[in-house]
Simulated scan of single mutants.
Amino acid sequence: MGRRFLITGTEGGVGKTTIGCALGFAFRARGMRVGVMKPVDTGCIDRDGELYSADAQSLALAASCAIPLETICPYRYRSRLAPAVAAEVEQSPPPDIATISRYFREIANQSDALLVEGAGGLADPVAWGTDFADLAAMLDLEVVAVAANRPGCINAATLALSYMEAKSLKVAGLILCDVDQEESPATRTNERSLQRIAGPLYLGRMRYREPLAKSIVESLL
């Protein structure tokens, strides 16, 4: 069995899908069958009478994953909220963990590596009583945490690392992602700070609109 990862964020809007797509493409380029999953997506748009997940589509295309999108992303909501909250607000069925686990096994059986992207951060509830950290533990996933290179990054990354430790999760590492082209004192110093805070768990930095560093990919193979 190949490696199975949860791509999560230290908070929302940090570049999870960017990192997930880059990893999917890189693994596929090395001849691997890459499965992808976005078990729950929020902020989806209506398209042809159905809710469409742009993140799930992007992951599938990057990894050349031909599995149906209904399996890759079984739960979709319009509201850009934590999944359990979005389901409640929209009066829609909440994500069912057993269904997610079944689809996960189906994808895993066809894959050499599997990338599961969360929605928001680790502590966001998938369903009430189960957050993404719990899901990672249930599915035996290694966690790749993505931090946005912007002010507030250090605090968010430190809290995420502490939460992973408290939950006894398998941690593959932390990646810093440039989400904006503009530089600031924070973007110029965040990497050095994360190297000190995360130590060997710091995998590297993905610079704005540049390919993912080979060293990051190889650390996850």
Rank of each mutant, 00 (worst) to 15 (best):
R102T: 11
R47W: 14
R4I: 05
D140F: 13
G43H: 07
G12Q: 15
A56D: 05
V116F: 12
M32I: 06
E218G: 09
A160P: 06
T158A: 15
T187P: 01
R102E: 11
S184K: 00
T99A: 10
S92V: 02
K170H: 14
A113K: 14
T18I: 13
P200I: 01
I72C: 07
A29N: 09
E106T: 08
I7T: 04
A213C: 10
R188N: 15
S58N: 15
A186E: 14
S79P: 05
G12K: 12
R105S: 15
N109S: 14
S193I: 14
I100A: 04
A136Q: 12
D48Y: 11
F132G: 13
A108R: 09
A172P: 08
R150T: 00
M32S: 13
D178M: 10
Q195S: 10
T10V: 00
A123M: 15
T17Q: 08
T10P: 02
R4L: 08
T158L: 14
D55N: 07
L221M: 09
I19T: 00
L115M: 07
N155A: 08
L174I: 03
R30G: 12
T18F: 15
R209D: 10
L159A: 01
R28M: 07
A123V: 12
S64I: 07
V34Q: 03
I19G: 01
R150A: 02
G204K: 05
M32Y: 09
L203G: 02
E165M: 09
L169D: 00
G129W: 01
A87S: 04
R76A: 00
D46L: 15
G173L: 03
R3C: 04
A148P: 06
E182Y: 13
E165Y: 07
S92A: 14
Y103T: 03
S193R: 15
L169F: 01
P93G: 13
L201G: 13
C73V: 03
L212R: 08
G120N: 02
R209G: 09
V126D: 00
L114T: 02
S219G: 11
T71Q: 12
G173K: 05
V40N: 01
G13K: 08
Q181G: 15
L161V: 06
A86M: 06
V143Q: 13
R33S: 00
E183H: 15
C153E: 00
R78K: 15
N190R: 11
G2K: 04
S79Q: 13
I67L: 13
T42G: 05
F25D: 05
R30K: 10
V144A: 12
A84N: 04
A60Q: 12
A119S: 02
T99P: 11
I154K: 04
R102D: 12
G15D: 09
D41K: 11
I100H: 04
G118L: 06
E182N: 15
Q181H: 13
T187F: 02
A84P: 03
